[in-house]
């Protein structure tokens, strides 16, 4: 092959790859949907009965700023609470706001826990916010959220 021909061929390849992103938009619509498709907004409304949740410094949400991989992202939530019969954390909900099913985990506590804390690991399909919605025993809802950058890193 002559050098010039090679570049011509390369040109075609480049042209095709320039079109490819547009095609992948079309493919997105046909993406498989999981069994529990549910958006964060809808879930939040259902859980709080439309009241919504108030961001609070009492909710300590810990997630990595950058996740090494989307398959295992550590998440921990701790809520300041005396955990007595009169005043305790009823439920902590964890959401991956942009996942197909945004709901990850709901933990229902009792005063017997002694401390309102949970830690787990979630899968993230893309860069997004992780949100924690906390239901207190008095019926109020608190929240915290933080963004996690998901990278495709490393080798293999």
């Amino acid at each position: 092959m002559k050098r010039r021909d090679f570049f011509k061929k390369l040109g075609t390849v480049v042209a095709i790859s320039a079109v490819a992103p547009m095609m992948s938009f079309g493919a997105d619509e046909k993406k498989a949907k999981g069994p529990n498709e549910l958006s964060y907004e809808k879930a939040l409304e259902a859980i709080t009965n439309g009241k919504g949740a108030k961001p609070s410094a009492k909710v300590h949400l810990k997630v990595p700023e950058i996740a090494e991989n989307g398959a295992v992202v550590p998440v921990s939530v701790e809520v300041d609470s005396p955990m007595t019969e009169q005043d305790y954390v009823k439920t902590i909900h964890i959401f991956a706001t942009k996942n197909n099913n945004s709901r990850c985990l709901a933990v229902h506590f009792t005063p017997a826990n002694g401390k309102a804390m949970l830690a787990t690991r979630v899968k993230l399909g893309s860069t997004q916010d992780i949100a924690a919605i906390v239901e207190m025993s008095d019926g109020t809802f608190l929240s915290a959220s933080q963004s996690v950058k998901v990278t495709i890193g490393g080798c293999g």
């Binding site: 700023e65 950058i66 996740a67 090494e68 950058k149 890193g153």
Partner: peptide, 8 residues
């Protein structure tokens, strides 16, 4: 080029 922080 992202790099993780020490906290991460």
């Amino acid at each position: 080029q992202f790099a993780m922080s020490d906290a991460d």
